[in-house]
Design a protein around this nucleic acid. Structure first.
Length: 283
DNA sequence: TTACTCCTGGCC
DNA sequence: GGCCAGGAGTAA
């Protein structure tokens, strides 16, 4: 399930090989992959094909879990990989029934979007700046240098909502999903059920520091491949070897040796060590 | 704020 | 054959 480190890895791959290539042919096999622009409501497939054919990829950007394919002419595609989406630039012809979008490029290569579970989507952003299209749905990127500790705390703390839910809210800080939220909370020693308003200053410091450490470590290892995820060239990530709690139910906590617990929390599998992760009760 | 819905491969 | 995984939009 692609989160910030996986999407950033795809972005780096695609930026290295796709930039300045002209699109010669386009196929959107499934109409429901196209999401309407929230500002215009437009999801017309003929417009999508007409705009893309003949355009060049100017650059690849990222905001949270969203990839932004910037095309020449100040417009672009916002691609969300959902749970099982992959966007791979290579030579393989898109024969697969799960290959919903395919671009053919001037050098004979292809860009193929596969998404078996179809939670992903493409949004045609017709106007600059493209990031404006995401403004109401996506907050500041978790690795944005402008996000300092004070701003992080100000965004997440004013609520009794459990801290894990706040970390997963893309409108606040964008990029974290279930795997990294669990890993970051374990690293920071905070119970995921703690009300965010009850965390003390030391907890916010640890949370902010560990968020950076975990995400940057995962980017270095090209993300976590548990099943579907592949990078922009079809390769796998290796951060799963570094996971401390996610998917480790019943295994020994790497810190205290007691078993890792798993519970269903607000509809999400949540992995934690009840001994190492303190429930914040506030003052 | 919370619960439900979408979807399908993998597992039991 | 049935359950589970989960991001995000929507309805209540």
């Amino acid at each position: 399930m692609p989160e910030l480190p996986e999407v950033e890895t795809v972005r780096c791959n695609l930026a290295a090989t796709l930039r300045e290539l002209r699109v010669t042919s386009v196929c959107f096999r499934r109409r429901d992959i196209l999401r309407p622009d929230p500002r215009t409501g437009s999801d017309a497939i003929d417009l999508a094909i007409r705009k893309t054919c003949g355009s060049r990829v100017r650059d690849i950007d990222r905001l949270g879990k969203n990839l932004i394919l910037k095309m020449n002419g100040a417009w672009g595609w916002i691609v969300h990989l959902g749970m099982s989406g992959t966007l791979v630039h290579g030579c393989a012809p898109p024969e697969d029934v799960h290959a919903h979008v395919a671009w053919w490029l001037e050098d004979g290569s292809t860009l193929v979007f596969r998404d078996p579970r179809r939670f992903g989507g493409w949004t045609l952003a017709e106007y600059a700046p493209i990031r404006e299209v995401l403004r109401d749905r996506v907050g500041i990127d978790a690795l944005d240098p402008a996000l300092n500790l004070a701003r992080f705390r100000d965004l997440l703390s004013p609520s009794i909502t459990p801290i894990k839910c706040r970390l997963l809210d893309q409108r606040l800080v964008a990029g974290l999903g279930n795997i990294y939220a669990d890993e970051i909370l374990f690293a920071a020693g905070i119970d995921p059920r703690s009300p965010s308003c009850a965390l003390d200053h030391a907890s916010w410091e640890r949370l902010f520091r560990e968020m950076h450490r975990v995400l940057e470590g995962a980017v270095c290892r090209r993300g976590t491949t548990l099943s579907d995820y592949r990078d922009g060239w079809g390769g796998m990530g290796s951060y799963h070897a570094c996971l401390a709690v996610y998917g480790k139910e019943g295994e020994d906590c790497p810190r205290c040796g007691n078993p890792i617990h798993r519970m269903s929390f607000r509809g999400r599998g949540t992995h934690f060590c009840p001994r190492c992760q303190q429930f914040a009760k506030g003052r």
